[in-house]
Design a protein around this nucleic acid. Structure first.
Ligand SMILES: NC(=O)c1ccc[n+]([C@@H]2O[C@H](COP(=O)([O-])OP(=O)(O)OC[C@H]3O[C@@H](n4cnc5c(N)ncnc54)[C@H](O)[C@@H]3O)[C@@H](O)[C@H]2O)c1
Ligand SMILES: NC(=O)c1ccc[n+]([C@@H]2O[C@H](COP(=O)([O-])OP(=O)(O)OC[C@H]3O[C@@H](n4cnc5c(N)ncnc54)[C@H](O)[C@@H]3O)[C@@H](O)[C@H]2O)c1
Lengths: 211, 211
DNA sequence: CCATTCTTGTGCAAACAATCACATAAAATG
DNA sequence: CATTTTATGTGATTGTTTGCACAAGAATGG
């Protein structure tokens, strides 16, 4: 491991590599060259090699990378060799889709608790039999279940307040689906999944092309 | 307008600015300085000014930017001064959340047709009364309704094949929710909304911190 | 109407990221 | 066992993005 700073884009790509390798392993492929892996992920082959080189020498010259071994290493780097416990805040349309999505669990991400403010929802159970908790239980449950990641799926207007509650409850990282930029204190991580920004990007490119 | 190349990160930020300005307009704010706008969006003030400068001089020195006017300009740049017609492919958990989401329409994005392969779904109507079409109708409906954007919410294994059908049907841009990298012919645009990559990013940072 | 204050627009340097090109090492070949 | 082939790892290079620092323009106030 080299102790230079790792480009953030590298981390994003490692995630893509891991996914591609998972796919290759399913397809009984044992060895892959940087060319092929790069093509599968839509990046430059040298990029693949350089990204990996930040963390060690995983390949064999003249041969390529052993799929299983490389996947193991990347998962270790990303911290995917363990289970991550998450809380979902706001069980509306999107929240329901998220907790129903079984791929997260396969990847090691588990929604261990679900919260909402709507009195019509609190106290009921999801189809999965999971209980919907009120926000007053947040801190206790986060502590009890050692939850580290909070997922915000509340309306945008409530997202910042929700983030504060999550921080107060002892959560370290937030994945935010609400279309607002959330301000966090030093040392906490937020990442946004932003549908509209992506659509705007498409709209811009379509508009440009037409000119 | 300067005919230098526009950084793609600039386009992403324009989307954030537009959202922040919308919010400010709601709050009856008429004028905003780059400092404040930057803070709201979590970027550097000089960045805001430079991003805008690619497209023109929208501010008044010593004063700031007129919120309404700047919002209008940014929307024009991004192509948000019109309606965009979209097709949704794959009406599962996520697809249902997407079509139910009324914010898209407010922003000018409309799902004008919904498709699936499941014979139990095709021919039925959504709660919104929208018909679920079979994939055999794709091309005809894309043409008839002049759909330009395709949204893929099928399982990952079906995403590439679906993308090909969309291209064949005459669609120009795709927003892909499936966790795979989609290969597209020259001149077509794909963008991915990638939940897992974001989670992996959080996992990595949490893992690093702990070291 | 000059001085002061404020905030934009931008040239330039620094930081960051992607790509090329080749030395290096392992395997295959004859 | 020398030679060729293959594909990694990485220094050098090129390209892109960000951020500083300040000149320039607009309003304000005495
Ligand atoms: N549904 C989509 O496809 C979609 C797409 C893009 C963005 N989003 C964003 O995701 C978020 C959720 O979307 P949705 O469609 O599920 O909305 P929704 O209205 O269906 O669900 C929101 C849920 O949050 C709960 N809630 C409200 N305030 C809360 C609070 N302070 N604390 C806890 N829970 C609270 C509500 O009771 C409700 O159950 C929104 O910010 C939306 O803009 C959704
Ligand atoms: N649900 C989530 O929160 C979530 C989160 C992250 C990623 N995703 C991704 O989004 C996609 C959809 O997820 P989901 O949870 O809605 O899955 P889902 O299984 O609930 O729905 C998929 C739908 O696609 C339809 N479909 C299958 N093959 C098709 C084809 N060839 N053409 C058209 N339709 C087809 C199915 O009939 C089904 O209705 C998946 O790729 C998933 O990995 C979902």
């Amino acid at each position: 491991m080299k102790f230079s700073k790792i480009p953030s884009a590298t981390i994003t790509r490692l995630s893509l590599y891991s996914r591609a390798l998972e796919d290759l392993m399913h397809g009984q492929v044992n060895i892959i060259a940087s060319d092929k892996l790069a093509q599968k992920c839509g990046v430059n082959p040298a990029q693949v090699r350089k990204d990996l080189a930040y963390f060690g020498e995983f390949g064999v010259r003249g041969v390529g990378y052993f799929v299983k071994e490389l996947l193991f290493e990347i998962k270790k780097i990303l911290g995917l060799n363990r289970r991550w416990r998450m809380a979902l805040i706001g069980i509306g349309n999107l929240g329901l889709a998220l907790v129903a999505h079984e791929n997260f669990l396969k990847q090691g991400y588990e929604f261990v608790a679900v919260f909402d403010v709507d009195p019509k929802k609190v106290g009921r159970r999801l189809p999965s039999m999971q209980m919907i908790h009120g926000m007053d239980e947040l801190e206790a449950i986060v502590k009890e279940k050692q939850i580290e990641i909070g997922v915000i799926a509340t309306p945008a207007s409530q997202a910042q307040a929700t983030a504060r509650l999550l921080v107060a409850a002892g959560i370290k990282a937030i994945l935010n689906f609400a279309p607002v930029q959330i301000q966090m204190p030093e040392g906490f991580i937020v990442d946004n999944v932003d549908f509209t920004v992506k659509l705007d990007n498409l709209a811009y490119h379509l508009t440009m092309e037409a000119v």
